[in-house]
Amino acid sequence: MILKITQAINENLSVNELLQQYKQILFNELKIGKIAVYKLNSHWEKLLVSGISQECIDQIKIDDHLSSFTEITYVSQELPKVFWAFDFIIPIFHKDLILAYILIGDIDEEMEGMSPAIKHLSFIQTISNIIIVAMENKQLYKQLLIQEAFKKEMELASRIQNLLIPNQNSLPQNQCVSTCAYYQPHFEIGGDYYDFINFNDHELGFCIGDVSGKGIPAALIMSNFQATLRALFRPEKPLDELMIQLNQKVCEHSISEKFITFFIGIYNYKTRKLKYVNASHHPPMLYDFESGKTSYLKKGCIGLGMLDEIPRINVGETLVTKHSKLLCYTDGLIELERDDRMEVGMQSLTNIFTSSKNINDTFTDLIKHIDMGKENKVVIDDISLFGIEFNKPST
């Protein structure tokens, strides 16, 4: 019979088929007449009930009546009445963890000679353990397959999202600007996004955004937003008009509690003018190498998707001095968690950025700062940032 059960397991039978094999052995070959099998998954469930009334089964409460049994127990009159229809309670353990309870008994209470339940008790315990552990392993294996499939899907989603985010090799590098960028989702994919668009030989568009929340929902919204932005963003389109259209699209395509903080700018290499709108995003820092002064690009409006209509939009404009650098970033860079408290590490970021180092060396220091935060497990969100160093255009 052990061989029969083992073969059934090796044939990769379903849980229901294994239960039927188990029931057949107990009832037909071992002459057991009553059985109830309770197995613990996320909650207790009845796997098999036979030879006993539903009324009797309904009276048994696992947590109240069975949780105290840690070894095979004969059902005597001293136990609660709900068990009297059975002869034995058999707990099933695996690595010291309770997996199931088996209740068994005979149909013929007046039979002569040794009860089958007693005669085959050790064997019943053995095959019950084999069956239940096999079921547990099948369930774990199924969960593993689901997890592996999900992992592969997430890896694919991560690769696709990375294709949407400009890499270092595709960033604008010319006689007018030098750029650096960094992107690190908190999970495999995230809701941060930045982009650069070379409109022509003298105009550069760029933006950075952050969807509220993390993970798959935020990533889906941001992917849709990126496609919308790419379709609408043109140098001849006024930025306030663009923001109205983007807000409408975000409201149409995202659930009510999701919104996007966003910064967008257009830089003209010839005039050195930077036009921008800040939609409730952390203000980018603009540092002047010659004066050592830092300004913050704050003008704009509320976040996209916060309201159906944006009440007011202020388009900012600034003249970029002869030699400056700009840092745009999402809140994951400065919002840290220490001892269950949120901290804003703005001072450290300011100290690193407002130095005489060029943008490449500045980003080396910023990434070291990020890596230190990750090692100390204080980083709790997606992190995206990019920097632009504005050089004097050639005449």
Rank of each mutant, 00 (worst) to 15 (best):
C251M: 13
I334Q: 05
V75D: 00
I310T: 05
K95Y: 12
Q24P: 04
L297E: 02
K142T: 08
L229K: 03
F233D: 01
L66K: 02
N278I: 05
N351A: 13
S42T: 11
M111E: 07
E153F: 05
F353I: 06
S291V: 09
V320Q: 01
K119Y: 14
E389D: 09
H253P: 04
S42W: 12
Q173V: 06
L326M: 13
H94P: 06
L274Y: 05
G190V: 06
L163Q: 11
H323L: 12
K142H: 13
S178W: 01
L140Q: 12
N376F: 13
N16S: 15
S280Y: 04
E11Y: 14
K46L: 15
R234W: 10
L239N: 01
E241L: 15
K293E: 12
C176S: 09
M111R: 13
N200I: 06
E71D: 11
D240H: 15
S170C: 10
G332Q: 02
Q7K: 14
E155N: 12
I104D: 01
D240P: 05
L385Q: 00
K299N: 10
L220Y: 12
P91L: 02
L286A: 07
I32M: 09
P235G: 08
I370Q: 03
N41T: 12
I221W: 04
L121N: 05
M243F: 14
N174K: 10
A134Y: 07
K4I: 06
V379S: 07
E203Q: 15
F69Y: 15
E148Y: 11
F69T: 03
N224T: 08
F363P: 01
N278P: 09
L47R: 09
A157D: 04
F262M: 06
I35W: 05
Q54V: 09
R234H: 12
A181F: 01
Y22M: 09
K249A: 13
F353Q: 02
Q226S: 10
S355W: 05
L145I: 13
D106G: 08
F150M: 14
I189C: 04
I52Y: 02
E257N: 15
